[in-house]
Structure formats: structure tokens, C-alpha cells
Design a protein around this nucleic acid. Structure first.
Lengths: 230, 230
DNA sequence: AATATAGTTGGCACGTTGTGCCATTATCAA
DNA sequence: TTGATAATGGCACAACGTGCCAACTATATT
């Protein structure tokens, strides 16, 4: 099997169910490619690093590179996929007795707490910060990852109404808050993760729950948006 | 001025402050390119349509295409940028007396209500639905647009604490909910926009505000995430 | 009306990305 | 060892995106 990584399932298999030597070796090669690539991106830049550079540094042919990663940008998406994977695991690790908001907070908190301790994460976020192209590449798999996280939430919602809507918006929020928390922690010196996460949650509460006028479905008059003042 | 569209500011200028004939003509050309491109994407597919096809259909040279759009994928991002532009306008159109959650709901509601009536929007969402590459391309500008929306919210928050966090998460939610509402409306037959939006808002309320246990900063024990069952 | 000037366009060459194809090589089983 | 299976590397090729320059067009000047 020529193992091009097209789906997240394949990545998961690569990460988890490693039985035979071949798959293990492939996984090692993929990790090596990712390692040298992120190093090169950090040294030079994402744009100025060619696939040939990465292949040479990893000791493989340029042709083989595309058998491990679908594209150069997919190297960045790999970080996002891994991030989403951890979030899903954290969601599923929560006991069934948890309320939805508790699951949400626990998952974000645990993953972010783990992420900020790893130098690799810092390096990736630094690459994303300085290179718009790298950030754009990472975003390319956002919907995919979000869908998987939504399914993880959906498994906890069986029976309720508007399940997929709830799960979808929760998934988006999860990635949003987790990403913002990690970035905030890195950019603002010390990594007080719970404080950061709770500030974000507080911001949401401020926007939606305090001074709550319930969102009535029918009635309120709408303000016609006129063209902008400026 | 060779007018390559690199920044959203440039797009906004192109959309709004059209004073001289030259800029107006350029804007018309850009619109024509976008028109024929979306038609081609819908007929064939995003991947099977080359830049040469688009250029030929628009009556320009392939070289000139890149003077109006930075890339083929940027055609899809153009839709997102325009979407974000409308959201910002709707946010700024809300009276100052509005609470944050009212601003949020009004902006999403007005923009989505407008969007679902336009056949163009439907066509774009259909392209995005069937073509992962097109969807990925659109996502490439997500952070950019989200940042602009965050600034629009930030202007209403002057004085508060954690402004940028609140604005950032609100911006993410705005795009998230607006996009989901439009997609939901399109995929589930009739376009009862207020109902859809309020269902999404209700989902968030369910997840975060009802049965509210306030998010205490310090204390709760965390569940150590063990590896997944499967 | 003729000319200078500034900006747009199109063509060309080039580097990079990504893929299909096939011969070669390595790995595993019998 | 031998035979089957899969990974690898090399080649050719299409598409994307950019720098460069010559040709064209419209406006302004005299």
C-alpha cells in the first residue's frame, strides 16, 4: 500500500494501531520528514523552503515526499490534525456524568495544558505566526477536523434535538478556544493555561449569558443596515 | 497601479470608494472574472477548471488573471471576504444601545437573511460543498477576515477588560454561525433564517448557559485523559 | 493635432508544486 | 532461494504563480 495520507483516519491508524514493522517504519519516516520540515521552516521560512529541500534533508527523493504528505502545506495541516486528535481523545476521556460545558472546558484545558509545554508546539505556532501561507495551509483542513470533533460531541448528545447543530458549533468553539489559548499563552509570556481558558469562557459568558435577554424567535424589529458611516 | 488584490482593504476600496473611471472598470473586470469562474466551477468542477479556462472565458490573458486575483483559490476566498464585509457593515449598523448578544444576533440574522436570497450565494456554497479544494482555498483567508470582524466588535467594547479575547471569540462565532446558518438553510429546503439562527443560539445556550455552573477559575479536579477505548 | 507620460496588457521564460507511469529495489512469506 | 508484494526513485508532464519587458491605450501637455 503506497500510503499517501489522504484521510485523517489514515493518520490515526498511523499513530495508533502500529502492528507490523512496515507501518512502524513508515510512521518513523513521516515523523522524520515532519521534523526536518518544521526545522527548515523555522530557519528560513515556509515559502523559501522547497519540497526538494525537505526531501534532501530527510534523505528521501522529492517524489517520495508526496507519498507521505499530500502537499507541502499538508505538513502544517498535520499539526492541526494532531491537535484535533488530542481534543477528541480528551472529549472521550470525560466521564459521562459531565455536563456539556464541563466536557468542553476539560477538553480544552487538558489539551492546551499539554500543548504549551511542548517546544514543538511553540515552533509550529511561531511558523504559523510569521508565515501567512503556512497559516492558510493549516486552515485547509479545518472543516475536516471540525467535523470529527463534532462527531465526538455528537456521541454525547444522543437523544437531544438539534444534535448536529449543537455538535457543530461546539466543535468550532473548541478549536477556536484551544487555538486562541495556546497562542495567547505563547505570546503573553507565562503560560497560565486555566486562567487563559477561563478568561475566554468568561468572554463568551459576557457576550451571551450575562444580562440575558432570551433570544426570542419571532419578534424583534430588525435594524436595517445602512451603508457604513466612513 | 497594477492592482493585485493582496489585502482585504484593497477589496473594500474596490467595492466602495470607486471614484475614477479606471478603478470602476477594474472592478467590473474583476466581477466578470469572478462570474465566469464560478460558472465554470459549477459546470465542471473547481479542480478541473484551469486558470487558462477562466482567462479565456473572461476574455483576458492568463497572465492578467493574476493581476486581479492572487491565485485560483483566491476566487473562493473572495466570497468569504465579501461575506465578512457584509457582517462588519451589519455590526456597525447596530445602534450603540444594543447589548453585545443583540449586536451578534442582529448582524448574523441580517447578513444570512440577505445571503440566502441570492442565487449566487447558493452557487458558491454548492461549489464549496462538492469540492474540498475549493473549501480549503476559502479557509485560507479565514483568519484575516476573522481579525477584521474582531476589530469591528472591538470598537464596541472600548473600556472593557479582555477586549481582544472577547472580540476574537465573538468574531469566530459570528463567522461560524453565519456560515452554518446559510449552509443549513440551503441544505434543508426552506430558508427560515431566524429560526435557524435562533436554533444555533439556543444550542449554545444549552451548552453554556443553562444549568449554569459558573466556570470557577481555580479549583476543579481534572480528569486525566487515558488513551482511547477503541 | 501631435507628443509625452503613466498605467494596463499580453507574451515569454522560469521555478515550484503535484501526479502518472514504470523500472528498480527492498521486504516478507513459502 | 524463490516468488510475491509493496516501497522507492527517476522521468515526463500539466498546472500554478511570478518577474521581466515590449506593445498598447488613455490621459495630459504644448
Amino acid at each position: 500500500m503506497p500510503t499517501p495520507i489522504d484521510t485523517i483516519e489514515a493518520v490515526q491508524d498511523g499513530l495508533l494501531a502500529i502492528s507490523n514493522l512496515k507501518a512502524r517504519k513508515q510512521h518513523a519516516v513521516r515523523g522524520a520528514i515532519w521534523e526536518v520540515a518544521t526545522n527548515l521552516f523555522a530557519e528560513k521560512s515556509f515559502d523559501e523552503t522547497t519540497v526538494d529541500d525537505i526531501a534532501q534533508a530527510a534523505g528521501i527523493s522529492p517524489r517520495s515526499f508526496f507519498r507521505y504528505f499530500a502537499s507541502k502545506g499538508d505538513l502544517m495541516a498535520y499539526a492541526l490534525v494532531s491537535f484535533g486528535d488530542q481534543l477528541i481523545a480528551a472529549i472521550e476521556a470525560c466521564p459521562d456524568s459531565y455536563q456539556l460545558n464541563e466536557v468542553f472546558r476539560e477538553a480544552v484545558l487538558n489539551v492546551v495544558r499539554e500543548a504549551v509545554t511542548q517546544p514543538r508546539t511553540r515552533k509550529v505556532f511561531e511558523i504559523l505566526r510569521v508565515s501567512p501561507a503556512a497559516a492558510a495551509s493549516e486552515m485547509s483542513r479545518l472543516l475536516e477536523v471540525q467535523g470529527l470533533i463534532a462527531r465526538a460531541f455528537g456521541r454525547r448528545l444522543s437523544g437531544g434535538i438539534d444534535e448536529d447543530l449543537t455538535a457543530g458549533v461546539l466543535a468550532g468553539l473548541t478549536l477556536q478556544l484551544a487555538g486562541m489559548s495556546v497562542r495567547w499563552s505563547f505570546e503573553h509570556g507565562k503560560a497560565d493555561v486555566p486562567a487563559t481558558v477561563d478568561r475566554l469562557l468568561g468572554a463568551m459568558e459576557t457576550a451571551f449569558c450575562r444580562k440575558r435577554r432570551p433570544f426570542a424567535t419571532g419578534g424583534r424589529e430588525r435594524s436595517t443596515p445602512q451603508e457604513r458611516p466612513r
